[in-house]
Amino acid sequence: MAKTTIDTAALYAALDAARTQRELSWRALAKEIGVSPSLLSRIGNGLKPDTDGFATIVGWLRVPAEQFFEGVEGGATQEAPDLMVQLAPLLRADKNLNETDVEYLEQVIGATIKRARAKE
């Protein structure tokens, strides 16, 4: 039976990146998100957030909840989705980029990924 759990380390890292970028304290970040500071502290300590707290956080981060899922089946972690599959919706959602910009970035990122994989 497959079991999906929340990757609290990845969730905390995303929160910390947003906090650092905005130059906020953890308490100020919690207020901006609309959750309690203790929820962020619990996540930092590796504890799973409650469902409403998790939904509020991923909604505020504006990323798919699945980005923070760990699926374990038969002892092996499921393969991560392709990087371009993850990036394409983010690029297209950016209102500062027109279609030409998005296509160009997809080409550049795709070529970079292809080159990196060729080195493996």
Results as ranks from 00 to 15, higher is better:
S36I: 02
L24F: 10
K31R: 15
V58T: 15
L39Y: 11
L61H: 06
D52I: 09
E23W: 01
S38C: 03
I33Y: 04
S36R: 07
A13P: 06
T8V: 15
A28C: 14
V58A: 14
L11G: 01
G34N: 12
A14M: 02
T51N: 11
A14H: 08
S25H: 10
E23G: 06
K48H: 13
A55Y: 10
L29S: 11
F54D: 00
V35M: 02
A30T: 13
W26M: 14
K48G: 05
L39N: 06
E32R: 13
E23A: 15
G59V: 03
Y12D: 15
I57V: 06
P49H: 09
A17E: 00
T56W: 07
K31T: 15
A30N: 04
A9I: 04
N45E: 15
G44F: 12
V35P: 07
L47V: 01
T51G: 09
R19G: 03
K31V: 15
L24G: 10
G44Q: 10
L29M: 15
T20K: 08
T20M: 03
A28L: 12
A14I: 09
L29C: 09
R22Y: 05
W60G: 07
L61N: 03
I43R: 01
A18S: 14
A30Q: 11
S25C: 11
G59H: 13
G59S: 06
A13G: 02
L47T: 05
A30D: 06
G46F: 05
K48I: 08
G53V: 11
L61G: 03
K31W: 15
V35C: 05
P49Y: 00
W26A: 03
A30W: 11
R22C: 01
A55D: 15
L40T: 12
D52R: 14
N45P: 09
L40N: 04
W26V: 08
A9P: 00
T56V: 11
E23N: 13
P49I: 00
T56L: 14
K31D: 15
L11M: 06
F54I: 13
V58E: 14
D50K: 15
V58K: 04
A10E: 05
A10F: 12
I33L: 03
Q21M: 01
L40S: 02
L24P: 04
T51D: 05
K31N: 13
V35F: 07
L24T: 01
L24W: 09
D50N: 15
L15A: 05
N45W: 03
S25A: 14
Q21S: 07
E32P: 04
G44P: 05
S38P: 02
G46K: 07
T56E: 14
A13M: 00
Q21L: 05
W26K: 13
R19P: 03
I57A: 09
A28H: 10
L47M: 10
P37S: 09
Q21R: 04
A17S: 03
A14T: 03
A55V: 08
A30M: 10
L61K: 05
G53S: 05
P49A: 03
A9Y: 00
L61C: 05
L11E: 05
S36W: 06
Q21W: 00
S41Y: 14
G34I: 04
R42F: 01
R27W: 08
V58L: 03
E32G: 08
R22G: 00
F54P: 09
L61W: 01
A14P: 02
N45Q: 15
A17C: 02
L39D: 04
T8H: 03
